[in-house]
Design a protein around this nucleic acid. Structure first.
Lengths: 221, 221
DNA sequence: CGTTGCTTTGACCGATTGGTCAAATCATGC
DNA sequence: GCATGATTTGACCAATCGGTCAAAGCAACG
């Protein structure tokens, strides 16, 4: 018969470092299960939104019992937060890669290609993000006005420089960036609609060529 | 003391015609309240999604008690359905207006302008629709593959004809239409993000000129 | 001005929700 | 092979959910 009053469980420390200093290292099982759970959570959050998702469904899709899931994450909120935390960074990586010293048109077209590739490879992440933004970004709104704005302003300035130098056709850099987000993410976020209209054809077959043509015509000086 | 066992209430017939033939005409109060409720429901559904919305919140925002609200609509589902039913049609009106006999470039640019105007005037409707599609269109999925596809295919054929005649630069008509949806609705659906990046500037100030330039360069033969 | 039927609501219901807890089971290093 | 702590779970809880109901309040028409 156990006498320890309340064992310090994984949730008390498995917060992936960051917070308190004296946290024991995560066990193999913890690492695996946390990844498994986050994958299931991504699945459910991305197709139901935060409030529409239930812990039971996440647990079910992860093949765990609900209390077991809550042993690894202290709350539904925590899972959502863990997903969103990593996401914005990953999502902006393609933008960071734009090289101020590169050939302007190539840089933009490569950026479009990278973003399109993300819609192909990570549609769930795209929809998770879309859900959050459409509903007013209640959980990452703060980051948008700071981190995001800083990065976009920086890259917009680079693009503006290219336009000033006559190496790109003149346009509104910020709106240009918005357009790339919009056009590429559309294929992930509005997937069902696009597929319904196209019938059998895979939307992401025609998309790269279409977008390359569109941006070439828009940006060639 | 009332003796009538169960008075036929508004919900039993106020389904706006369509269904049964012998429905009494809606009273003034019914008309007003139903509109009031739909407005509140649009507000809540568009910013929380279907499952995230609660009947209590809709009732509260409409200034009604919950039972009173459920007197006018038999269920939360019914409100959502009423909103979506009208929506897809309204949403596609700008596309229907494309005139096969018009000047190709003008027709496309006018379509873009109309869609952008809808993002400005009806952002809640846009977000309601976005929520539904992002989450897999569980309630209007059927319509997409039929009504929507038919209309889009028809207009895509018109555009294809213009391209074949050399009156528009060659491009993929379906993807062109997707791009217009995407670029215009982005300003409503991702409003918070776009605003956060732009700071004080109103996104819909720069958008029309940007989009006109983009489509002009893309489509001038 | 009273009757009739439309409108409104407080109280309530069963189902589902996110989350807890104590006890049982398992893994692992000694 | 056993002690210790990590992991798992069935049972449970309070809060919230969508929806119901009977009774009360109101408007409109004669």
């Amino acid at each position: 018969m156990p006498k320890n009053p309340a064992p310090r469980a994984a949730r008390d420390r498995a917060q992936e470092g960051e917070a308190s200093g004296a946290s024991r290292p995560a066990t193999r099982i913890q690492t695996e299960k946390r990844a498994l759970i986050l994958d299931a959570a991504l699945e459910v959050f991305s197709e139901r939104g935060f409030r529409g998702a239930t812990v039971d469904e996440i647990a079910g899709r992860a093949g765990l019992s609900k209390p077991n899931l809550l042993y690894y994450f202290p709350s539904k909120e925590a899972m959502h937060e863990a997903l969103l935390n990593g996401l914005l960074d990953t999502w902006l990586d393609p933008l960071r890669e734009i090289d101020p010293n590169g050939e302007p048109l190539d840089e933009i077209l490569a950026y479009v290609r990278r973003k399109l590739e993300m819609s192909r490879k990570f549609p769930r992440e795209s929809r998770l993000f879309a859900n959050e933004i459409v509903q007013g970004a209640p959980r990452i709104g703060d980051t948008l006005g700071t981190d995001l704005k800083v990065l976009v302003d920086e890259k917009a300035a680079v693009i503006q420089g290219w336009m000033d130098d006559g190496r790109l056709a003149t346009s509104h850099p910020h709106h240009l960036i918005f357009s790339i987000w919009s056009l590429t993410q559309h294929y992930a976020d509005f997937d069902v609609q696009v597929r319904a209209v196209l019938g059998g054809e895979d939307p992401l077959d025609g998309a790269p060529a279409f977008l390359e043509t569109l941006y070439r015509r828009t940006l060639v000086p």
